[in-house]
């Protein structure tokens, strides 16, 4: 009887403990630089439980890294790469699929690397003096993060808090690259790689949703999504990968085929000119605001570890862009411009 009481007491204490450590300061916030197509109340109504509870998908708080030659990755394996403050790091998709957030540091600057497997999106955020965690909630199938300072909730793609004390404020983004290990290592030979010694026990050789090499399961373009969306757009199969950018002029999605074929895509959104340049090495885009509408020629450009170098690049302002599954992009940005090649929208 005493044992039962002790067990009940222990379980009571365990379940009543806060799931995360509360820190002192909020993450970096600013007035959002990105469009918010739905009202915050609509986003809050659209939030769904993803199954696991708060921190049920645990973020990595003390990441360890290996040199590139110690990585057990094949060239085709998907990674999320970042080059910041002179450091290049790669985060294998097969590790992030189990954690979704890595709270890391680059030369003293606190950065969160985030990945949502259900929408195929990878984004980096400055996190100030706190950490980001996985809330266990989803909106448009997209990871809803929370910050451990204020408990505000931030859908990853939106990068704007929809609930909590910081509702309506935005996170400051950093460009991260959704590419392959072979491509990343060729661009950044000195890169480090996130180790499987995460502090948690997971089967890092197995992706519960499917596979990118070869493409299968949830990641197939024509496979069905699991959760409802705020806006449905069937112009492409749900999981088709597009390159998206959003800025003061609105949101734009470019098909991978159009970006690969055209090399440089110039688009006007509202009053603003944007230029997206295809990086064949990493097979991704670099997005820029092009206020002077400068003409950029792909043949004149060089893609280096530090970024793009070439005539006209210095007059451009970098805009964050990232790959996303079409259904999720269209759900967050129902009025998105779409570029499929040929005439500009």
């Amino acid at each position: 009887m005493q044992g039962s009481a002790r067990l009940a007491f222990t379980l009571g204490i365990l379940f009543s403990l806060p799931a995360s450590l509360v820190l002192a300061d909020p993450p970096s916030v600013s007035t959002p630089q990105v469009p918010v197509a739905h009202s915050l109340a609509s986003f809050r109504e659209a939030v769904r439980s993803g199954g696991p509870g708060k921190d049920g998908i645990p973020s990595i708080e003390h990441p360890r890294f290996l040199p590139a030659d110690k990585a057990e990755l094949s060239d085709a394996d998907r990674i999320i790469g970042i080059h910041h403050r002179g450091q290049a790091k790669a985060y294998p998709q097969r590790i992030l699929v189990w954690h979704e957030i890595v709270n890391d540091e680059f030369a003293g600057e606190a950065i969160s690397i985030t990945y949502c497997p259900l929408t195929g999106t990878a984004l980096g955020f400055k996190r100030g003096d706190t950490e980001l965690g996985v809330s266990g909630k989803l909106v448009n199938s997209n990871l809803v993060m929370y910050d451990r300072a204020t408990d505000s909730e931030w859908p990853q793609i939106l990068a704007v808090a929809i609930d909590g004390p910081l509702a309506g404020q935005g996170l400051e983004e950093l460009r991260v690259f959704w590419t392959t290990w072979g491509a990343w290592r060729a661009r950044h030979p000195q890169t480090e790689v996130l180790s499987e010694q995460t502090g948690f026990v997971r089967n890092y050789r197995y992706d519960p949703y499917g596979s990118y090499t070869p493409l299968s399961g949830y990641y197939r373009p024509d496979s069905t999504r699991l959760f409802p969306v705020m806006h449905r757009d069937d112009r492409f199969p749900a999981k088709t990968e597009v390159f998206g950018l959003r800025g003061a002029g609105g949101a734009l999605a470019i098909t991978r085929e159009a970006l690969r074929e055209e090399g440089v895509v110039n688009v006007t959104l509202g009053e603003r000119h944007y230029t997206v340049i295809h990086d064949a090495g990493l097979d991704t885009g670099w997005a820029f605001h092009n206020p002077a509408n400068v003409s950029i020629r792909l043949a004149d450009l060089e893609f280096t570890a530090e970024g793009i170098v070439g005539p006209g690049i210095e007059s451009l302002e970098a805009v964050n862009g990232f790959e996303a599954m079409w259904f999720a992009w269209a759900a967050f940005y129902p009025d998105t411009a779409l570029y499929e090649g040929g005439e500009a929208p």
Partner: peptide
Amino acid sequence: WQTRGPLQFEPVGL
């Protein structure tokens, strides 16, 4: 004793 969901506990080994 760490939970990862309702009545789902963290693994300790492989």
